[in-house]
């Protein structure tokens, strides 16, 4: 719908519409804890980052939360306490992500205990990453597109992260198998957020293909909806972390593919 609206705005109202940066007096809120925890099967190094929210008019440097107690355990009885390797960044090299295992994150910080759990799904193979071209308003546009076979009946949840010329592109794309279970999924994965970086011939496009559990899918799906700009009622994404922390904890598989635009 964003496309339609943009089109209407461009074609009908471009002569008269105008965009302006304005000042809005936004309330300040008490800082909240933000946790981003990831367990992958790529290596045994797992990272949890803890920061705090800032007011809208502050700079984009989010304060780190140091000296927290961070542990990751799994349903086989492994448990490890993560070390703060730099301010607010906690890591371990003792936990390897294993398909089918459920991981539990516990964070004690700012006098509160936050917990989350996430199950690493079995991997699905991404067949191909290719570039599709569209003749759109103002010339050719390039969209990274993917194709993979979605196994039937597994409740597949997928997430894509794009890197253009080595730099992470804003936003993420999530796909669920609801309504497309057990078939070949083939589609562009451009994010509805922002207009995105424009790709051109010679650009390197890399895509991380993540298989996640349903809670992580819900988190990114709601994150995406809330940042799409025309949401009638934006809200904080639905987090899988308890006790009011923002952020998520995700155990997922990662597969990377890359291509160069010709």
């Amino acid at each position: 719908m964003k496309l339609i609206k943009n089109f209407i705005l461009i074609s009908l109202a471009s002569l008269v519409s105008c965009t302006k940066v304005i000042n809005i007096d936004l309330n300040s809120a008490d800082p909240k804890v933000v946790i981003e925890g990831v367990v992958t099967g790529l290596s045994s190094k797992q990272t949890v980052t803890i920061t705090k929210t800032v007011n809208f008019n502050d700079s984009n440097t989010m304060p780190a939360v140091s000296s927290a107690l961070v542990t990751i355990s799994d349903n086989t009885g492994q448990l490890d306490t993560l070390k703060e390797t730099s301010s607010g960044v906690y890591t371990t090299e003792n936990i390897a992500g294993v398909y089918g295992r459920t991981y539990i994150l516990t964070v004690i910080a700012e006098g509160k205990t936050f917990t989350a759990q996430s199950t690493m799904p079995f991997p699905v193979n991404l067949d191909s990453l290719y570039i599709s071209t569209n003749q759109l308003l103002g010339g050719i546009t390039y969209s990274p597109s993917i194709r993979f076979y979605e196994p039937a009946g597994k409740g597949g949840r997928y997430r894509f992260i794009r890197y253009y010329n080595g730099k992470k592109e804003k936003g993420t794309t999530v796909i669920s198998d609801e309504g497309v279970d057990g078939i070949i999924i083939e589609r562009p994965i451009t994010s509805p957020r922002d207009n995105g970086t424009e790709l051109k011939v010679g650009d390197l496009v890399e895509v991380d293909f993540l298989c996640t559990d349903d809670a992580v899918y819900t988190y990114f799906n709601s994150l995406q909806q809330n940042t799409s700009g025309d949401s009638a009622a934006p809200d904080n994404p639905v987090s899988n972390i308890s006790n009011g922390a923002l952020g998520y904890f995700s155990a997922h598989t990662v597969q990377r593919k890359s291509t160069i635009i010709k």
Partner: peptide, 14 residues
């Protein structure tokens, strides 16, 4: 009413 960073992007708090 505020902002934070997740997944490398700035996100907003409501």
């Amino acid at each position: 009413s505020g902002k934070y960073r997740v997944d490398g992007d700035v996100q907003y708090v409501y």
